[in-house]
Design a protein around this nucleic acid. Structure first.
Lengths: 200, 200
DNA sequence: CACGCAAACGGACCGTGGTCCAGTTCCACT
DNA sequence: AGTGGAACTGGACCACGGTCCGTTTGCGTG
């Protein structure tokens, strides 16, 4: 079950204190740097705190836990992708038939995974299924459900949305790519085929 | 990537030493008891060692790590299910049309999840995607792939097998049941519908 | 500018999973 | 029965994620 960590809450008219803002930036930069450089799984929280020049307490106060920090680092990239789905050019954005948009979404998300699956795995660490109750998932889920409805899969659209999102989990992607040896391109084709079968 | 933990290996003609065998039994019983009673997530390895009357080193020597121990506890149950798929009565076992057998498999696995999802989650803890490279998954995957081939989905059967197994992951099950509030029965119906769409 | 205090800070501390290795136990072979 | 040594044992030990709480800092108010 999704629980927002107990992070500092700012009342609607409060501003974040300047030292807090500065430290948040420092931490995000340090974490991004270290994750990028050593792989998200091989960076300890101590190391991030040290690199950021900040105490460990601060780190955890601002970000709750390791996974949550990774999610924060991921957020910017995620927004970019979501932007494309809403306002980007067809077939990713509006203006193409729903089946095509589904396939385009799949390809776009696969590309996203190719770049960021490491970070995503870190963001879900220790909570299998966290993905399924996270805000970004809710967004993609809504997107896919809408497209399924437009394609006429009225009855079970919500369940089918989860089915269509499953092959796009970071774990599944890594398995298909690293264990089964499928290229990102090949995965895109398979995904398109799956979409046809399901909305067909 | 699947890596068997570095457990004691017995040469083909070696017998396990009697004290080792006794300790293994004690640990499995203790773990089963504690997992059952307190929920798999709330039992520390120290507690299991204590309950079994065994040192911590022994615990880790025999079972590698926490997840691996949970897998061992799970194994017996898993074998039972697999038995049903191979030699059980139709439609679960042989003798029914493939689409029906797929649906029956789905229902059977959902029942399995209803009983054991806690333990399964513990068995996968810390390694998202471990499931996908584990021996039991390989078994189910083969089973589903075969049925898909029999149903005439030749081309992408292996990819589609993963798609059909995804809604049967413990994490997805818990999400559907606990967050979306779907009953096991309802999930069975949805799964059957999914099978029809995919093999149709 | 001085004051007060909520908010933020940071490092000592804790519990836990997992490792290590010195000592013990079992067993096959005399 | 005695013995050699491989296999097993167990608890001290370590690293890391996460918490706690006394101290410091920013900032609105008089």
């Amino acid at each position: 079950m999704w629980m927002a960590p107990d992070l500092p809450v700012l009342g609607s008219d409060q501003r974040e204190r300047s030292d807090a803002a500065r430290n948040r930036r420092k931490v995000l930069e340090a974490a991004g740097r270290l994750f990028e450089c050593h792989g998200a799984a091989n960076v300890s929280m101590d190391a991030i705190a040290a690199e950021a020049g900040v105490g460990k307490g601060t780190l955890f106060r601002r970000f709750g836990d390791r996974a949550s920090l990774a999610r924060s680092v991921l957020e910017a990239h995620e927004r970019e992708l979501q932007e494309g789905l809403i306002r980007g050019p067809a077939p990713l954005g509006p203006g193409a038939p729903p089946a095509e948009r589904l396939a385009a979404f799949g390809r776009a998300y696969l590309a996203f995974l190719e770049r960021h699956s490491d970070l995503i795995l870190a963001a879900e660490f220790g909570s299998p299924g966290l993905r399924l109750v996270s805000p970004p998932y809710a967004f993609y889920r809504t997107h896919v459900t809408l497209l399924l409805l437009q394609a006429g899969a009225a009855e079970a659209a919500d369940y089918l949305a989860d089915v269509l999102l499953a092959p796009l989990s970071a774990a599944t992607f890594r398995y298909h790519r690293d264990v089964r040896g499928l290229s990102v391109d090949e995965l895109g084709r398979r995904y398109e085929d799956l979409c046809r079968r399901i909305v067909g």
